[in-house]
Design a binder for these strands. Structure first.
Lengths: 219, 219
DNA sequence: ACCTGAACACCGTTCAAGT
DNA sequence: ACCTGAACACCGTTCAAGT
């Protein structure tokens, strides 16, 4: 019966992530976290420097949960899977997208980057293409996830949005063409796969062709 | 001598933006804003619903400050200029990038989208390509700007970052290849133009060729 | 030496009291 | 009717007092 359930960093992180999953990152206060842990509000500070470090640890946990890169399988499919997995993970906890955007350099991010560089350069992708490609994919996924998470409730103030937009357009007498199309575009989530395909396709076109039809297999 | 300098929404927004430019968004508190305006802390609430609305108005002002799209000039160059302008604007006030990411639907955003749809479809870009392209460019710029603004001070805790990353990689006995390369990649700002080029190039390839060599000029 | 919780210095916002 | 500022309900974090 001895309550030896001491606090640990991993317990703190998993409890905090659970709080974020259920009630959003705004509900993650040091006091609420301590309550969920059944501990004193200050006990958490024994294991975590401050709240910023706690949020960084959450981001690291999310990234560490993604599949590793396998250097023996084609890079393009793996980069695509990585992008979808990260997007899905952030879509499941929307409020964390902005947090990850604000703390992108974590140990797991470094580990993933190292594996991706090995994967891509090992398969003939020039280093600068691999570097630019990784940065592009990451920026795209983050930007997409944060934007998607921040879409306002449709119809919420749509009339005012329209009116104010018309004012920006110089209050024309006739309705500007495609205004309703544009309204739909900014209100609806976009097609994640479309932009990802643009990026991956561009990367593939920057990989010099291998001389023969196969040269990595069987050596 | 009568102090008739009444508050107005535009004065509030420009004063708030100035505060953000000089001291970052964290320094933008309702109290500090009122102080900068020489007004009572609560006077701002006469013109702005709450702080979220104030931040939204700041984002709108940043977007409204960008060049308009001109339907008579090539879409690709204008989309490229838009991306660079927005990136530069956010690089000049880094802390606002995350705010814009969290409030992407504003009147100016709608106006820009409407103009971009007119521009692109008017020059033969299929609507779904234009829609996907705009969303992709926006997500990329936002994600890039937020990530760039959040890069930690290099060398700040680099050793701990390395050690923790090695732990994620399974504590190998030999140094994983390209780890220093990866460290450089996650610490340094990436090449904004590279990813933008990937996206624009992919869009261009999705525009069906016009029948003759010229058909929009002179008509 | 470690842990606790009262207290500090904020914050956004409400609301009753003034003009 | 409009404007003000004291007050409320928080927050992250410090630090002195306990074990």
């Amino acid at each position: 019966m001895a309550r030896t359930a001491r606090l640990s960093s991993s317990l703190i992180v998993s409890t905090a992530l659970d709080l974020v999953d259920r009630h959003g990152v705004d509900a993650l206060t040091m006091r609420a976290l301590a309550r969920a842990l059944g501990a004193d509000p200050m006990a958490v500070y024994r294991h975590v420097r401050d709240k910023e470090a706690l949020l960084g640890a959450l981001c690291d946990a999310v990234l560490a949960d993604l599949d590793r890169f396998d250097p023996d399988r084609p890079w393009r499919g793996q980069l695509e899977r990585f992008a979808w997995q990260l997007r899905d993970s952030l879509a499941a906890r929307p409020s964390l997208a902005a947090v990850l955007a604000g703390a992108p350099v974590t140990p797991a991010a470094l580990a993933l980057t190292q594996q991706a560089v090995v994967l891509m350069t090992g398969q003939g992708v020039p280093l600068d293409v691999a570097a630019g490609g990784l940065a592009t994919v990451f920026a795209y996924v983050i930007g997409f996830a944060v934007t998607e998470a921040s879409l306002p409730d449709p119809a919420e103030g749509r009339d005012e949005l329209r009116r104010a937009a018309l004012h920006h357009l110089g209050d024309p007498e006739t309705e500007p063409p495609h205004l309703d199309t544009a309204l739909r575009l900014v209100e609806q989530p976009a097609d994640f796969g479309f932009g990802l395909e643009l990026i991956l396709e561009g990367l593939e076109r920057r990989v010099p062709p291998t001389g023969s039809s196969r040269d990595a297999d069987g050596s």
